[in-house]
Simulated scan of single mutants.
Amino acid sequence: MPRNPKRPCAYPGCPNLTDGQYCEQHRKYARQQYDRYERSPHTASKYGRAWHRIRARYVASHPLCEQCLKEGRITPVEEVHHIVPISRGGTHAEGNLMSLCQSCHNKIHHDLGDR
Protein backbone atom coordinates (compact mmCIF):
# COMPACT_ATOMS: atom_id res chain seq x y z
CA MET A 1 0.00 0.00 0.00
CA PRO A 2 1.50 3.39 -0.93
CA ARG A 3 2.44 5.79 1.82
CA ASN A 4 1.28 9.38 2.02
CA PRO A 5 3.82 11.99 0.92
CA LYS A 6 5.79 13.72 3.65
CA ARG A 7 4.58 17.13 4.81
CA PRO A 8 6.49 20.14 6.11
CA CYS A 9 7.02 20.33 9.87
CA ALA A 10 4.35 22.46 11.61
CA TYR A 11 6.97 24.30 13.67
CA PRO A 12 7.22 27.90 12.34
CA GLY A 13 10.10 28.32 9.91
CA CYS A 14 11.19 24.66 9.91
CA PRO A 15 11.97 23.34 6.38
CA ASN A 16 12.12 19.64 7.36
CA LEU A 17 9.66 17.09 5.93
CA THR A 18 7.92 14.62 8.23
CA ASP A 19 5.28 11.87 8.34
CA GLY A 20 3.66 13.35 11.45
CA GLN A 21 2.90 16.89 12.57
CA TYR A 22 6.42 17.78 13.72
CA CYS A 23 9.88 16.65 12.65
CA GLU A 24 12.07 14.72 15.10
CA GLN A 25 13.89 17.92 16.02
CA HIS A 26 10.72 19.75 17.14
CA ARG A 27 8.50 16.89 18.38
CA LYS A 28 9.92 16.92 21.92
CA TYR A 29 9.72 20.72 22.16
CA ALA A 30 6.08 20.75 20.97
CA ARG A 31 5.18 18.06 23.56
CA GLN A 32 6.83 20.11 26.34
CA GLN A 33 4.91 23.22 25.28
CA TYR A 34 1.64 21.28 25.27
CA ASP A 35 2.33 19.80 28.70
CA ARG A 36 3.28 23.18 30.13
CA TYR A 37 0.49 25.38 28.79
CA GLU A 38 -2.45 23.25 27.67
CA ARG A 39 -2.51 20.17 29.88
CA SER A 40 -4.01 20.17 33.35
CA PRO A 41 -1.32 20.46 36.05
CA HIS A 42 -2.90 17.56 37.96
CA THR A 43 -2.33 15.15 35.07
CA ALA A 44 1.33 14.60 35.93
CA SER A 45 0.45 13.49 39.44
CA LYS A 46 -2.11 10.97 38.14
CA TYR A 47 -0.24 9.72 35.09
CA GLY A 48 3.46 9.67 35.97
CA ARG A 49 6.25 7.16 35.43
CA ALA A 50 4.48 4.44 37.39
CA TRP A 51 1.42 4.71 35.13
CA HIS A 52 3.55 4.35 32.01
CA ARG A 53 5.01 1.12 33.39
CA ILE A 54 1.57 -0.22 34.35
CA ARG A 55 0.21 0.72 30.92
CA ALA A 56 3.09 -0.97 29.09
CA ARG A 57 2.62 -4.14 31.12
CA TYR A 58 -1.14 -4.14 30.45
CA VAL A 59 -0.69 -3.56 26.71
CA ALA A 60 1.81 -6.43 26.56
CA SER A 61 -0.73 -8.80 28.11
CA HIS A 62 -3.76 -7.37 26.21
CA PRO A 63 -2.48 -6.36 22.73
CA LEU A 64 -5.92 -6.18 21.06
CA CYS A 65 -8.92 -3.89 21.58
CA GLU A 66 -11.28 -5.63 24.00
CA GLN A 67 -14.44 -3.99 22.56
CA CYS A 68 -13.55 -4.97 19.00
CA LEU A 69 -12.81 -8.55 20.09
CA LYS A 70 -16.34 -8.79 21.53
CA GLU A 71 -17.68 -7.74 18.11
CA GLY A 72 -15.43 -10.16 16.20
CA ARG A 73 -12.88 -7.63 14.90
CA ILE A 74 -9.13 -7.72 15.47
CA THR A 75 -7.75 -4.24 16.15
CA PRO A 76 -4.46 -3.38 17.90
CA VAL A 77 -4.63 -1.48 21.19
CA GLU A 78 -3.97 2.28 21.14
CA GLU A 79 -5.38 3.41 24.50
CA VAL A 80 -5.66 1.93 27.98
CA HIS A 81 -8.95 3.09 29.47
CA HIS A 82 -9.86 3.35 33.15
CA ILE A 83 -13.32 1.85 33.66
CA VAL A 84 -13.80 3.96 36.79
CA PRO A 85 -11.93 7.23 36.08
CA ILE A 86 -9.11 8.30 38.38
CA SER A 87 -11.00 11.55 39.01
CA ARG A 88 -13.93 9.52 40.42
CA GLY A 89 -11.86 7.34 42.73
CA GLY A 90 -10.64 4.71 40.25
CA THR A 91 -7.22 3.11 40.47
CA HIS A 92 -4.57 1.75 38.12
CA ALA A 93 -5.47 -1.80 39.20
CA GLU A 94 -5.70 -4.30 36.35
CA GLY A 95 -9.39 -4.92 37.05
CA ASN A 96 -10.10 -1.24 36.36
CA LEU A 97 -8.27 -1.15 33.01
CA MET A 98 -9.43 -1.95 29.49
CA SER A 99 -7.36 -1.97 26.28
CA LEU A 100 -9.11 -0.12 23.44
CA CYS A 101 -8.49 1.19 19.95
CA GLN A 102 -8.83 4.94 19.45
CA SER A 103 -12.29 4.61 17.90
CA CYS A 104 -13.74 2.57 20.79
CA HIS A 105 -12.07 4.85 23.35
CA ASN A 106 -13.62 7.94 21.75
CA LYS A 107 -17.00 6.19 21.55
CA ILE A 108 -16.96 5.37 25.29
CA HIS A 109 -16.06 8.94 26.28
CA HIS A 110 -18.64 10.35 23.90
CA ASP A 111 -21.34 8.13 25.44
CA LEU A 112 -20.24 9.22 28.94
CA GLY A 113 -20.43 12.85 27.83
CA ASP A 114 -17.14 13.85 29.41
CA ARG A 115 -15.34 14.90 26.21
Rank of each mutant, 00 (worst) to 15 (best):
R115E: 05
D111E: 15
I83L: 06
M98C: 15
G113L: 05
C65G: 03
L17V: 10
V59E: 10
G48P: 07
Q67Y: 11
R115T: 05
E24C: 06
C104G: 00
G72P: 01
A44K: 13
P8D: 14
E71I: 04
R7H: 04
L97V: 05
K107C: 12
G90K: 00
S87E: 11
E79M: 08
N106E: 09
K70D: 03
C14A: 03
E78P: 10
S103R: 15
P85I: 06
R73M: 11
R53C: 02
H82P: 00
R57P: 02
D111C: 11
Q25P: 00
T18Q: 13
P41H: 03
R88T: 12
P2W: 01
E71F: 03
E79Y: 08
K107D: 14
A50Q: 14
Q67F: 12
A10L: 13
T75S: 03
H42I: 12
Q25M: 15
C14F: 00
H109M: 08
I54P: 01
H110L: 12
R57W: 09
C65F: 01
R39S: 12
R57L: 10
A93M: 07
S103N: 13
S61K: 11
A56T: 11
S45Y: 13
P76W: 03
G20Q: 08
M98Y: 09
G89E: 05
H42N: 09
E94W: 10
T91L: 04
H62C: 02
G48K: 00
P15M: 09
P76H: 00
E94V: 05
R53M: 09
N106C: 06
I83D: 04
A60L: 09
Y34A: 09
H82S: 00
Y11E: 14
R53T: 05
H82N: 02
H110I: 08
V59W: 06
G113V: 01
C23T: 01
K28Y: 12
G113R: 06
R39M: 09
D35T: 13
G89A: 10
P63F: 06
L17M: 13
R57M: 06
I54Q: 03
R115N: 06
N4R: 15
R3N: 07
Q21A: 15
S87W: 07
P41E: 00
C23I: 02
H52D: 14
T18E: 14
S99T: 02
G13T: 01
R7I: 04
I86C: 05
N106D: 13
Y34D: 11
P12V: 05
A30I: 00
R7V: 06
S61R: 08
R73C: 06
A56P: 04
E78H: 04
N96A: 04
H52M: 08
H92N: 04
P8H: 14
P41L: 02
Y29P: 08
Q21V: 15
Y29L: 15
C9P: 01
P5E: 01
H26L: 00
A50Y: 10
L17F: 10
H81S: 01
K46F: 13
A60I: 09
D111N: 14
I83K: 11
H82R: 02
A44M: 09
N4G: 10
R7W: 00
E66S: 07
